[in-house]
Amino acid sequence: MTAEPPEGRPSEAERSLEVRWIFPGRLETAVTEWFGRFPIETESREDSYLLDPRIVGLSVKVRGGMALEVKRYDGSPGILEVADRARGHLESWQKWSFPFSPPAQYSGRQNGWRPVGKKRRISRFSLAGGQIVARAALPDHEPQCDVELTEVHTVGEDWWTLGFEASGPADLLASTLEATARLVFSHPLPGDADPDLDNSKSYQRWLSPHR
């Protein structure tokens, strides 16, 4: 895939701490109702992930045909555990976003790229009086955690994912994510999906299982 040189400057690097679970099949109504006890925003878009050539430690995608995002994996600080409710691999990332001007023939389906359709439900959490609460997004660099419940469609298959992404001061990332996870999982995830280590992985690891 080629594109015109981007206009403007890339964003500053954003640090995040993330955990994600990905499950096969269609998203059940019971799960959307479980998530709907928090205020949500909705968004539908198609992202395209670079799978070939493989670049160890990097995730590269075109986000909604509007931005080129590059994420660098900085390792795992350990396991998120919410007693009897969830276990997942914590992942540290740095992300840069570049303006993207696709050529007229761009479709997101060029060789080496995998298009992934997403219908996202997003709830945002932040600290208020020492407690994690659902609220509107805060200014940059404030401790917060976005939680997304997303329906995914790629190569004719349906999947869904539940992900947490904490941002803000580096020394508060872990505590913010863990407090948010305890609140979200204060009610167990309904249905047969088990948020365990086997289902915990990033989009890039899921799409390229052998990298």
Rank of each mutant, 00 (worst) to 15 (best):
S44K: 05
G156T: 07
R211P: 12
G57P: 12
F35E: 06
G163F: 00
A104I: 11
A83G: 10
N111K: 13
T154S: 13
W206N: 02
W93E: 08
A174I: 00
R124H: 15
K201I: 02
E148R: 00
T29Y: 04
G191Q: 03
N111Y: 14
F35K: 00
A13S: 14
F100G: 09
R182S: 13
E33R: 15
F100T: 08
R72I: 05
D196F: 01
P169E: 10
T154H: 15
E14G: 06
E142M: 07
L172N: 04
Y106K: 04
C145W: 02
R37T: 12
P5G: 09
F35D: 03
P103R: 10
L68C: 13
S48F: 04
W96M: 09
G191F: 06
L138M: 06
V31M: 04
V82F: 08
A30C: 08
A13F: 05
E41Y: 05
W113E: 11
E14Q: 14
S186P: 00
Q110F: 12
S76R: 01
E91C: 11
A104E: 14
R124L: 10
A193N: 04
K201P: 03
E81V: 13
D171N: 13
E157R: 13
L183T: 04
W34H: 06
D140C: 00
P195E: 09
V82L: 04
E165G: 09
G88W: 01
S92F: 02
G64V: 04
S97V: 11
Q94A: 12
I40V: 15
K61Y: 13
L80P: 14
D192H: 12
E33H: 13
F98M: 05
G129H: 05
Q94H: 08
F164C: 06
P195N: 06
L177I: 07
D74H: 06
G78T: 02
S123Y: 01
E18R: 03
E142T: 05
E165L: 00
L207I: 06
L50K: 08
T32L: 14
A3Q: 01
P209R: 05
W96F: 05
L183N: 02
W160Q: 02
Y49N: 06
Y73I: 01
P77E: 07
P139K: 02
I79W: 05
D146S: 13
R124I: 12
T176C: 06
E157Q: 15
R26H: 10
A166S: 11
H210D: 12
V31R: 03
P169N: 11
G57C: 04
V116T: 07
G112W: 11
